[in-house]
């Protein structure tokens, strides 16, 4: 009893400080995550759940829509990550030699579109992709080419969504690469100059290795964001035409809130979780580095 009083006296403030956020953490994160693992093995309806083992997962394995939505998600994520990493690295290296004032002007210009909601951005893209009066078809037909049904043609719609994403240089990448490049010591390049290294050699042997931690971080967050693509699809195509743009989160949303199949939706969410975890793990394994400067 004495020990308990002493313990309480010593630690009560610590527990007071963490209590509010830890209570929220357990109710709204830990418990629902555990619940998701249980739901994935149940058939859930209004009366409650019944255990069905791995049936949700085997059903998904047999579902064409599930595999095609996985494929769409991978296509989207891979193209977006490659394009974003490349474009932000190129832009950051181009602004590097400019004066500080001009640099921060460009950084702000590239960051600005990132603060606006994807709903707003997606609505603008629907308008740009509009078949008759949209800006893209105006450009294309001015060049004498036939109009494209950007979002209505099932062979093209997914690529249009990819295009709407990759055309915008991500501000976060520009800012972080630019900061990383700014902190590479100049002596490295000067030493390389003395040795007679070419610009390309300097890029490959000095810049890339020193940018590796930034590249790793950006690759991981862009991959996670890419796999979680939802709003763009939901607003621009709703997964159509004929499911040609359904991605995994769009599928989770449909399964849960159109079909009200909560068990199966949880199974889909866990698969998404596993994919994201696997990708993050692999990227850490291959891109992590102990270069320090």
């Amino acid at each position: 009893m004495q020990a308990l009083v002493k313990f309480w006296h010593k630690h009560k403030w610590s527990y007071f400080f963490i209590a509010p956020s830890m209570i929220l953490f357990f109710i709204f994160i830990v418990y629902p995550v555990a619940q998701a693992f249980l739901l994935a093995f149940q058939k859930v309806d209004l009366r409650g759940g019944t255990w069905i083992g791995f049936k949700n997962f085997t059903d998904l394995g047999a579902s064409k829509l599930f595999w095609s939505s996985l494929q769409h998600t991978f296509v989207y994520a891979i193209f977006v990550v490659l394009a974003w990493i490349t474009s932000s690295m190129v832009v950051a290296s181009l602004i590097q030699p400019l004066t500080n004032k001009v640099q921060s002007l460009f950084r702000a210009a590239f960051y600005l579109p990132n603060v606006i909601s994807i709903i707003v951005i997606s609505l603008v893209w629907i308008w740009i992709f509009e078949p008759d009066y949209g800006f893209f078809n105006f450009l294309i037909s001015s060049a004498g080419l036939p109009k494209v049904l950007w979002l209505q043609n099932p062979d093209i719609a997914l690529w249009s969504i990819v295009l709407s994403t990759v055309l915008i240089v991500p501000g976060s990448g520009v800012v972080l690469y630019s900061a990383a490049m700014g902190s590479v010591p100049r002596d490295y390049y000067e030493a390389a100059d003395v040795e007679g290294a070419s610009a390309l050699q300097k890029l490959i042997h000095i810049t890339f290795p020193l940018l590796k931690p930034t590249t790793l971080y950006l690759t991981v967050i862009y991959t996670i964001a890419g796999f979680q693509i939802f709003e763009r699809v939901y607003i621009m195509t709703g997964g159509g035409p004929i499911n040609s743009t359904t991605t995994i989160v769009q599928l989770i949303f449909q399964t849960a809130f159109s079909d009200f199949n909560f068990g199966r939706a949880s199974a889909e969410a866990l698969i998404l979780f596993a994919i994201i975890a696997a990708f993050s793990f692999v990227q850490f394994k291959f891109l992590s580095t102990d270069v320090e400067y």
Binding site: Q228, A265, S266, L270
Partner: peptide, 26 residues
């Protein structure tokens, strides 16, 4: 404190879609 903080770090990795359905049921 160490255990709780480790749980917070682990939770950083979990995509929000995992909790969507359980939260809606709640």
């Amino acid at each position: 404190s160490n255990l709780l903080f480790a749980m917070i770090l682990a939770a950083l990795m979990i995509p929000a879609q995992v909790t969507l359905v359980p939260l809606y049921m709640m």
